[in-house]
Design a protein around this nucleic acid. Structure first.
Lengths: 202, 202
DNA sequence: TGGGTCATGTAACCTGTTACATGATTAG
DNA sequence: CTAATCATGTAACAGGTTACATGACCCA
């Protein structure tokens, strides 16, 4: 379980609607956890039923009305419970689809796998570029597109004087650093594997 | 979707029961895709309904009876369709729980995260050891514990003369190589992150 | 006598995906 | 005129997890 906890975490920075959350999610946790907007809405309503959130319906005339969620004491303690009890063993239940594909490659021509790995490498490169863009956006005087109450000002790791919050940046950097390691590792693996496939087929 | 395709792939090596498949799965694809036995049974029955498999009930007197599954032409073509159409984009829908945990670490004492990362590093070390043990078992005249009809002889990447099948080993090695890269990368990331956390707190 | 292996599964649940629907406003 | 953005969701489905149940045999 974790989309719920991701959303709880983001809601500690301020009250937001599902729509706001999705955008913030994409620019932050989204680099290592993909979420569908439909699931965000569902989980928000689930969490409201559990008492982890409350919500207010904001009437707007120029735009559609919005439902703004607020984390409760109970939600806060659930978040802290999750953080404290976090069990790493679940992280070793891997599901790396590409390796299943590689494993059964004897059934297909070698060129097909080389082509596939080339596409995979490109995908990694693209993801790495997006990660670096996201990092730039955050570290270089990044400002979320606030429109008053809707977006949490305090999410911004840069404080009011324009200086980064060193602790928040530390954790953000740790996560981004994983991303860089991860994609670089995979690109290297692709290149090595492609090379070994080409050696054999010559 | 992919447990089904993993099972289809293994069944190309020979007819097996759900129980046999689970053991074989653990020693092969299991290094990069974890499966529950209950799901294996369910998916086998689903696939039989779809016509990808047929099954025979084998009556045994000393042991419980078993249901042995056989891949059909239709199952073979589904496997090949999946191999050919494999879409890498799904592999970039990451869900790396530990990074969500790291991202919200400002809410918890630093020591807690250091402790968590230390456990994570140990988990990687353990997974890496298991991978190496598995590799040894396969490359050094590995023989699956065959008991006649139940286990597929042809799964063994070592042929009848005791020499490895070079092509099959190539794909197996590519997958194992990913595993080594993957765990080594994560261990390095843990060490770097722990070091940076300790620097700050001093 | 107790625990492990053999061998099968069911049921409830949780999580995530895909496709669809509505309808106004705004920018190119 | 068209596409995007704002803002909300529902329904059906696919995939994975957890807990439970049965019952015999074998080994220490």
């Amino acid at each position: 379980m974790s989309l719920k906890h991701g959303l709880l975490g983001l809601l500690t920075y301020g009250d937001m609607s599902g729509y706001d959350l999705e955008k913030l999610f994409k620019r932050s946790i989204g680099f290592f956890w993909k979420a569908q907007i439909s699931q965000i809405y569902r989980d928000l309503h689930d969490m409201e039923k559990k008492g982890w959130l409350t919500s207010d319906r904001i009437i707007q005339t120029d735009k559609p009305n919005k439902q703004v969620f607020h984390i409760t004491e109970s939600g806060m303690s659930e978040l802290d419970r999750w953080l404290t009890d976090y069990d790493v063993s679940g992280d070793f239940n891997l599901r790396i689809g590409i390796l299943v594909r590689v494993f059964f490659s004897l059934r297909r021509p070698k060129e097909e796998l080389i082509f596939l790995l080339e596409r995979y490498r490109q995908g990694c490169q693209k993801a790495l570029n997006e990660l670096n863009l996201g990092e730039d956006a955050i570290t270089n005087v990044y400002k979320p597109n606030l429109d008053g109450a809707s977006m949490a000002k305090s999410f911004d790791p840069i404080d009011c004087d324009g200086k980064p919050d060193p602790d928040n940046m530390l954790y953000l950097n740790a996560a981004l650093s994983y991303g860089r390691h991860y994609y670089a590792m995979q690109m290297q693996w692709c290149e090595e594997t492609i090379a070994s496939l080409k050696n054999i087929s010559e």
